[in-house]
Structure formats: C-alpha cells, structure tokens
Design a protein around this nucleic acid. Structure first.
Length: 421
DNA sequence: TCTGGGGTCCTAGGACCC
DNA sequence: TCTGGGGTCCTAGGACCC
C-alpha cells in the first residue's frame, strides 16, 4: 500500500502561517522575477485565477479583488518542507520524498488495521506540528495513491483523506477522474485519448495494453498497469544523483551588457559546481546557453547554446566558471540581440570516485580540492557567497525582481517573527 | 516595465564501425 | 535486375512532472 501525502496550496499556506491577517483572503505566490502565478490559496482558486497567469496581466484583477501577492521565498518553503517531512516520516519505516510538498509513504509493513484512521492521524499531527494542512491518498499503486489524494481534496474535503480500500471505491474514483487529471498524462496524451473517445481513467483501463504501448510508449504502459492496480513505479527511498544539473535565471531586464551576463553566467556556474560537490560527483561537459525573450515577437530571436568538454571531469568552481565564460565568449553577440535569460548546465555527471585522470593534466587537483572544501565550509556557516570568485562580484547587478518577499521567519534570527503584547 | 526554473525518461534517426 | 547488414553510440526533441 502506498500513501501519498501532499500539502494543500503549499507556498500559499506557508505565507499565511506567519501573517495570520492573510488567512481567508485570496493570495498568490509569484515565480522568480515576480513573473507568473505559481501557487494560489483556496480563495484565489475560487476567484478563477489560473496557474501560470503572468503577473503583469493580472494586476488590475489582483487590485480589484484585494488579492495578497507574494514573491516566492524558497528559504522559507524549503525549511517548512523539512519540518513537514520529518513529521510524516515518524509514521512509517520508509518514505520517498517526491517533491518539496509531497511524499509517498510505504505502508506495506504496517500492522495498522484501519488505514483511514492512519491517514487522519497523519493529517492531524502535521497540522499540529507545522500548521500546514495536508491531504492523504491511500491505494495499491503510486498512480492510484496520487489519484486518491486528488479525490480526497475534491470529494472528501472535510476529512482530507481518501483510502481506495476496495474494488468499488477504486472504480468510483477511476470513473470520476478525467484523463487529463491522471498523473503522467499531460496535454498531448490527453488530446490523443480524448480523440479516441476516452474521457475518464476508467475508460483508459478498458482499452488493450498493446494500444497503449504503441501510442504512448513504455511510460504509458506502466501508467496503464498502475491504474489496474499493478505497481510499476519503483520506490526511490534515496534520492538519485542528478545526471544533469542546470542553473538558469532570467535577467531583471533585457540586456546586451557583456559584463552583467558574464557575472550571471559565473554565478550559475558556481552554483552548478557546488551542487556537483554536494552529491560528490564531477561532470565531463559544461553547456552554457543564452536566449532572447520569445514573447517579444518583434525583436530578433535566438537561443544559443554551446557544449564544452572538460579536459578532466571536474566539480571545481573556478574551472567550471572558466569553461562557462569560454562558452559565453563563443556565442555572445552584443550587436544583434538583447538577452533575457542565460544558464549553465553540467552534463555527463559521474561519481567523483570514477574520475579518470587525464595524463596531460598538470594541475594540482588535491590542492584546489582542499581550497574548495574550505570555501564550502565557510559558505555553509556564514551564508552563500561569503567566499566567491572575483568574477562573481558582490553587487548582483542582474538581480531579479522580488518586490513582495516575506521574511525568512524560520531560518534567520534577525527575521524571526515578532509579537507585540 | 512585466510571461519561472528545475528536472526525468523515452524514442527516432544519424553517424560511424566492421 | 541487382547497390549489405548488423551493431553501437550519440543527440535532438518530445513527452511528462512539480
């Protein structure tokens, strides 16, 4: 048995926790750069505000409806997520964290008779410990548990728990779930299924598996099996090492200023290098890309990318920065484009231990490794960027907009919540 | 002024080898 | 008339997720 526990309107719930005056009001959280809506409170959903709405197009409607607008505060959400996960983990021997706001719990070895009650207990404890409301779906496969969770939110709002305990309940749920609401069915597959007269998850379970295999590849077939109650998605209790790591951001505004772009690229490269070191891996290739704003249809467009092979696989900040700048210099074109976004991606990531040394490599890698270890230690203790490469600068001139940022209530002493008595 | 950022997996098809 | 065939590796692109 699988339980999928999912925080309700997670980012919006986090914002309300520390500003009780927001409770009951429509609230939206915006993406990086205050670009578009990525989370909504229940009240905002009720107003019909859609995911992905560009903030600048919705400003009038926000004002008219007295909507609270927040920039995204990942420090706060990340810390709240840790707290929620810790509480959930206390109920089961094993748990798979699936995303910042949801986790699969392994119920297979529990002697708990009444899983409905377990679901309620999880919900109550999480809200008591963290203040975050969650919903619980319980079923025989991951895909069905996801669906049960969604069904709990829709049809069992007051309890917030749905346990698809027998065939009839599974059937009822499958019949009530539209194909586009199945986990793993996106826009394209939904269109295909609709075109073939399939409207609900139940319809999908009734067609032959080889049709599914032919039209939706092996991932589709796995999904089909899961709907039929045959577990086909494996547990991943330990997060796998990333195979590629990408860091990218939009600039605050369009630019063709080489020094600003170089600074941004250097910072993205440094972030990638740090992520590599955190999972004890190295990369063999570094890719940089730089692109214009595709929404500006009247401006000249480009999406330039270049992959550079490392002499020796590496996770060193200065080396990855150097490769990235080399790449940038090859594609940057000051005269023809105004750029909106750039990024660095490290490819072909392998464990540090598998590193093959290049016989022509003359660098003293042990020495630079020690220096990086010290740098990481200091940065962990004193905050990111305390020690950095000169090219990363200190003033962050490509800084993103975040005009409505809440405090980091739970991780910074100087931003802790204050109560006036 | 203003439209996110990060990932994964799978497949088709080209390049290349003998 | 007839223009090999089988295999691997790599990449681009499409699908999906939160």
């Amino acid at each position: 048995m699988f339980a999928l526990v999912d925080c309700n309107n997670f980012y919006a719930s986090c914002e309300c926790l520390f500003e009780p005056k927001y409770i009951g009001r429509p609230l939206v959280v915006l993406s990086n750069n205050d670009g578009c809506v990525i989370a909504r409170s229940q009240e905002a959903k009720a107003l019909g505000i859609v995911m992905g709405t560009p903030a600048h197009l919705a400003q009038d409607s926000f004002r008219k409806n007295n909507v609270v607008v927040c920039s995204s505060n990942y420090t706060l959400y990340g810390d709240m997520s840790d707290r929620v996960m810790k509480t959930m983990k206390s109920f089961v021997p094993r748990m798979e964290i699936y995303s910042i706001d949801e986790a699969f719990l392994d119920l297979s070895e529990l002697s708990f008779e009444d899983l409905d009650k377990l679901g309620l207990a999880i919900r109550e404890t999480v809200i008591k410990n963290t203040g975050i409301p969650v919903s619980v779906g319980i079923a025989s496969t991951k895909t069905l548990a996801k669906m049960a969770n969604r069904y709990a939110k829709k049809k069992h709002r007051s309890s917030g728990v749905f346990y698809a305990s027998d065939e009839n309940l599974v059937d009822e749920m499958l019949g009530a779930t539209a194909v586009e609401d199945i986990w793993g069915i996106g826009h394209q597959y939904a269109l295909l299924l609709r075109k073939n007269g399939l409207a609900t998850a139940k319809d999908l379970t009734r067609i032959p598996g080889d049709w599914v295999r032919r039209n939706m590849s092996v991932t589709g077939l796995r999904l089909w099996n899961e709907l039929l109650g045959v577990p086909s998605k494996e547990w991943e209790f330990e997060p796998k090492d990333k195979k590629n790591i990408c860091t990218s951001r939009s600039f605050g505004k369009l630019t063709n200023d080489y020094s600003i772009i170089k600074e941004a690229i250097s910072n993205h490269a440094a972030t990638c290098a740090l992520k590599l070191r955190n999972q004890q891996t190295v990369c063999r290739f570094v890719k940089i890309f730089i692109s214009t704003n595709p929404h500006k249809v009247n401006m000249k467009q480009c999406h330039h990318a270049i992959v550079i092979q490392c002499e020796t696989a590496t996770n060193s900040t200065p080396e990855i920065i150097a490769y990235s700048i080399k790449g940038l210099d090859l594609v940057f074109d000051k005269n023809n484009f105004l750029y909106m976004k750039c990024g660095v991606e490290v490819l072909d990531v392998i464990p540090e231990t598998e590193l093959q040394l290049n016989m022509f490599d003359l660098k003293d890698r042990n020495k630079s490794k020690k220096a990086l270890e010290v740098m990481d230690m200091v940065n962990k203790e004193w905050g990111r960027g305390t020690i950095r490469m000169a090219v990363q600068r200190f003033d962050n001139r490509y800084r993103l907009r975040a005009d409505f940022l809440s405090k980091r209530f739970t991780t910074r002493l100087d931003e802790i919540i204050q109560i006036h008595i």
